[in-house]
Every structure is written in C-alpha cells, then in structure tokens.
Nucleic acid binder design. Structure first.
Length: 562
RNA sequence: GCGUUUGUAGCUCAGCAGGAUAGAGCAACCGCCUCCUAAGCGGUAGGUCAUCGGUUCAAUUCCGAUCAAGCGCACCA
C-alpha cells in the first residue's frame, strides 16, 4: 500500500503536478508478469495533456524519476514499470509479520461496533443438510473477519423453531407417531413423520387445516402443543450441537423464531398506529407498491403470524439489544425478496437503521441438478458428508504419513477442513451441484493443500530448532520475492473480504500464498548454513503465521504435522 | 410475464472495481524424491471471454438489447 504511494509520488513529481496524487494512485496497476515489475503506470492519460504518444512520454518520465526505493524503473511501450527495492521491502515485510504475529493484518474498520449475524438457522426436527453448512460457515468466517477488523460480531443462530410446519409435525405425530420411536432416533423419526405428512396431504388436503389449527394452538399457548414442541426442540438442539462441535463453531445466541412469539404484538400495534396495516383478502398486509415489491403479509386469515412478522420483531429486538452498526443475515439468495420486504417495512415504520441491515446471500446447492428439499426427501446430510471426509483423511494419512502421532485428531481437522474450505473458496453467489468427490478432494486448490503447506513450513521450523530473528537481512531472489509480495498483501485482503462480506477472498489468498511458498520450497533449500539462513527461516515462520491465520479466519484448523 | 443472480478452456472456477501475449485447479500426456513431508514442483496440450450493439486512446471488465440457465413472485420458511 505504502509502496503504491511511493510510486504515485514519483509519477506526480515527474509530471510537475499535472495529475493529482489520487488520480495517479487510481491508475497504478500491478503488471501480470513479474518481468514487467511490481507496479506500473500507464501513460495514456498524459497523452492528451502533453499532446504526445504515450510510448514517447513513458521514457521521458523515467528520465525524471529518482531510483530512491526502487531497484529499477523502466519504460516499456506506453508503461512506466517500477521494480521495488527487494532487499529493503522484504526486510520491512518480514519484520512486520515477525513483530505482529497473528495480529498481522488487523484493522480498525469497525471501532468496536456491534454486528449481529443471523446465521446457520436450521429447522427444528429436520436434519442439517449441506444447505445449512453454507450459512453456518460463511457466517462464522464473517464473524472472525469482522473481529479482525475490530467489529464486535454477535453470532445468532436464528433457529427455525416456529411456524406452520410445527402444526404439521404435531399433527403427523398425533396420527402416526410413538414416543418410543422418537426417543430412539429423534431427528430421523420426526423427519419421517414430516415427509409422510406431505405425501398423505397430497390426497387429503384437510390435513393442512388440522396442521394450521395445531399451530394456532401453539401460538395460543395450548399445553399439549407446547409440550410436544418443547420436546422436539430440545432433541433437535442436542443433535445440532453435536455437529457444531464437529465444525468447531459456536454461537452467542440460540434465540430462534419462537423467541419472538411474545414480541410480535408490539410490531402489529406499531404498524397499526402508523396506519400501515391494511386488510386484503382477509389477511393483514403492508402495501409495498412504492418499493415495487409484493405486499408483506403480516397476519394470515386465521390470525397467525408469518415469517416476516417474526423477522420484524427480531430486527427491532436486535436494534434495541445491541444498538448495532450493522445487522447481517447470512441467508440463501432465494430469500432476497423477503429481505427487501423486511427492510422496506422497517423503513416505512420510520427506522433509519434499516439501511444498516444487510442480507448476505449465497448460491444454492443442488443435488443431481435438483433443489434440495426435505419434504421430498432429497437431502444431503451434513453429518454424513463430514464423516465421509474424515474417513477419507484417515485413509490418506495411513498411506502418506503412517507414523503421525495424533492421527485421529489430524484426520478430523483435515477432513472437516476440506469440506469447510470447499464451501468458502468460491464466490458466495455461485450455485453448485453437490459432488462428494469434489468436496473431499485433498489435492490442488483445496483446504488440505493449504494445511499441507503450513505443515511443511512448521516442519522446517522444527528442524531449525531455536533461532532468533533479530538480525535479518534483505532477500532479493526471485522465488522469495513472490512469497514476500503475497505476505505484504494480507492486510489488503482482510479489508476487501470484510468490505465485500466475502470469505472467498481469504481462501483464494491462502491458496496463492501456499502456491508461492511451495514453489519456493521446491526451489530453495532453507536449512543451508549461510548469512541468509535466519532470514529465510523468518520468511518460513511468516508464511506459517499468515497461513494459519488465514485458515483460522475461515474456520479451518491448521495442524503442525499431517 | 415481472424481478433477481449467473453465462470465461472438456469439467470446476480466478481475473484485484477498463489497460501490455486471458489465468489456476481437476481430467489427459510427459518429467522430478541418495536433499527441509511427492497431500508437492515443473512441462505439453486445451479459449471467436454466450450473441449483437454502444461508451472509451483502450472493454472479459462499464451501459443497453437478445439468447440460455438458476432463484423468487400473498396466507411456507
């Protein structure tokens, strides 16, 4: 970053202030190929000012630029290419990483402001599928990233524990369920009832009325309904927590939809007071015509609430409780309309803070090209995927490193890490069709590749024993230069990932850093006794630190050996 | 139909908010372990950046249209 300023200043000085520093900074780019330097300034913008061809201007600029801070400055066609002083720059970067350790890359974008994150949010009485994994791992990574940028994230698991579906479940249980069967295998049994319900109600639509009646009872506090619901909820939560433990993710709150049951009346009252509520086809709605959105359904004909009613209550509750600077919702892109409606209704209610509500959408996972659907039985169980991945990691270890001391622990970290990393490495919005082989791949651009790179670095450091990094020297060979440049990019990557709510920025970065390090590793023997040995070790230590930190920000463990 | 997201190599994706010969990974083929973990490194082959227009000195990148796909469009969440 500062290097870019240095380049910009040199250009501004050489052009006698014809261009502002800001303009020049905006124009400066990083050449695609190393032999074209570290930064480049295209002289096209000057062609009009000087009435000359940019190819002619570039060499003239080079004449006027002092070499202070650069190894070389040269003109190639219309470009002025800058080569940084490798020795000075590498020393500076390594010193910084060694000094700051895991704090390297920390920023203060958030000034400690609260940011509730609505994430994971599985539905009670249903198993967790690959679909929930996305919200969980993206939310978790955003929380870590926000923390690094000095925000105070609050991870809220907005459990899907309320709604008509529980009427259906209770109705199904009453018709076909047995207590013993549920106790044996809660989730799968409840799921079975639920799926069965949807098969039967195709021909017996009156079941839906029964189900709605049960949900009505639930909202009205009927004892039998509440008892069943509480039981289903507890069993589900036990099961979910097992999976979260496996993923290494925890939450600050498990306040799901039901938590807002007693907070919706106020919302309805406010809407009424402000004259926003209208009756339409027997239901209560808020018209959103002027936002070019469908009306928001606040209450159904039978007086029960809907998803958006609860989300309105939740939004207000979160604002009052956390006084947030931003409020995030990590929810699939198929719900974009819902969040547009949510924000619009809040805006109509006069809440300016609705502008700080951000839906963080992500793409859909399909299976065989088809949307996952619990009711139709088309699910990919997260638990199974994780188990498969860990098992595969075990095989891999048995084959490649049979003497590894803590095999099971490492297999867990690698297997689970592979699944998480796979989910985070691509753009959030990309859809993907589930493919087990792809998800648990350990070679190429994968989580295990990054973990392996880290383990290699740690291995060198172990072999090196005690070394001090007090007397570092500059490095200027080609292979280490690639690594140094990557290391220096880390803080900028953090910033971008936070600003774009995009963990994939960090995943991609980790791959690039790993690549440059593996290349270096193949080319240079680190543990050779010479005057640069300690500096090389400092670089290896820096790579290990930054890789481990990158993985941590993604929610992936970095074993020292694998 | 309306809204929205997407369209880059056989497959999966990058391309840093316009720039110098479009990059990786898988898959294919060929090399590299007497040397810090070969879960690695190197090489070969593979593309009219969906199509057509527009803005610009410069467009894969910005704008518009068309085509194709995903998702959403009132009593589910």
């Amino acid at each position: 970053m500062e290097q870019k300023q240095l380049v910009a200043q040199a250009i501004v000085a050489a052009t006698d202030g014809q261009l502002s520093l800001e303009d020049v900074v905006a124009k400066i780019e990083v050449p695609k190929s190393y032999d074209l330097g570290d930064y480049a300034f295209p002289a096209f913008a000057l062609a009009k000012i000087y009435h000359k061809a940019p190819q002619q201007i570039a060499p003239e600029l080079v004449e006027k630029i002092s070499l202070d801070g650069f190894d070389k400055v040269e003109a190639v066609g219309p470009y002025v290419n800058f080569f940084l002083d490798k020795k000075a720059f590498s020393l500076e970067v390594l010193q910084e990483v060694i000094d700051q350790q895991a704090n390297y890359g920390d920023q203060d974008l958030g000034h400690a402001g609260n940011v509730p994150i609505d994430m994971s949010s599985p539905n009670i009485a249903k198993p967790m599928s690959m679909g929930h994994l996305r919200s969980t791992v993206i939310g978790n990574s955003l929380a870590e990233l926000l923390k690094k940028a000095n925000y105070n994230p609050i991870k809220i698991n907005h459990l899907g524990d309320w709604g008509t579906q529980f009427g259906k479940l209770i109705e199904a249980y009453k018709l076909w369920g047995s207590e013993e069967e549920v106790k044996k295998d809660p989730i799968n049994t409840l799921l079975k009832y639920y799926v069965h319900f949807h098969q039967v109600d195709q021909e017996q639509p009156e079941l839906d009325d029964e189900a709605r009646a049960w949900f009505k009872k639930l909202e009205d506090g009927d004892e039998e309904a509440i008892n069943l619901w509480t039981w289903f909820r507890e069993e589900s939560l036990k099961f979910f927590k097992g999976i979260y433990a496996k993923l290494g993710i925890d939450f600050d709150s498990y306040n799901g939809e039901s938590f807002y049951n007693d907070k919706m009346d106020e919302i309805v009252e406010i809407l009424q007071d402000k004259g926003l509520l209208q009756e339409s086809r027997g239901a209560e709605i808020v018209d959103l015509e002027k936002y070019n959105l469908n009306p928001a359904l606040i209450k159904k004909t039978d007086g029960t609430t809907l998803y958006i009613t609860r989300d309105l209550a939740a939004a207000l509750y979160r604002f009052r409780t956390y006084n947030f600077v931003q409020s995030l919702y990590v929810v699939g892109n198929e719900q974009t309309n819902h969040f547009n409606q949510l924000k619009a209704v809040l805006k109509e209610m006069g809440y300016d803070w609705s502008d700080e509500i951000h839906h963080i959408p992500f793409g859909l996972i399909t299976s065989g090209g088809k949307k996952l659907s619990t009711r139709r039985g088309n699910v990919i169980l997260l638990e199974e995927v994780l188990n498969d991945a860990v098992e595969l990691a075990q095989k891999q270890i048995a084959e490649k490193n049979p003497d590894l001391p803590n095999k099971d622990e490492v297999a867990e970290e690698v297997g689970v890490g592979a699944v998480i990393f796979h989910d985070l490495k691509n753009d959030r919005l990309n859809n993907f069709d589930f493919n087990l082989e792809e998800v648990v791949r350990f070679e190429g651009e994968t989580g295990p590749y990054v973990q392996y790179s880290h383990a290699r670095a740690m291995s060198i450091l172990r072999k090196a024993g005690d070394v001090s990094f007090d007397q570092l020297v500059g490095l200027n060979d080609e292979e280490s230069w690639e690594v140094i440049r990557q290391l220096s990019n880390f803080p900028a990557m953090i910033k971008r990932a936070v600003e774009e709510y995009e963990p994939s920025v960090i995943a991609k970065y980790a791959i690039h850093l790993s690549k440059s390090f593996n290349k270096y590793y193949a080319h240079t023997k680190v543990l050779t006794d010479d005057e640069q040995k300690n500096t090389r070790l400092a670089m290896v230590a820096s790579v290990a630190t930054v890789l481990k930190e990158s993985l941590r920000l993604l929610g992936v463990k970095a074993p020292d050996e694998m």
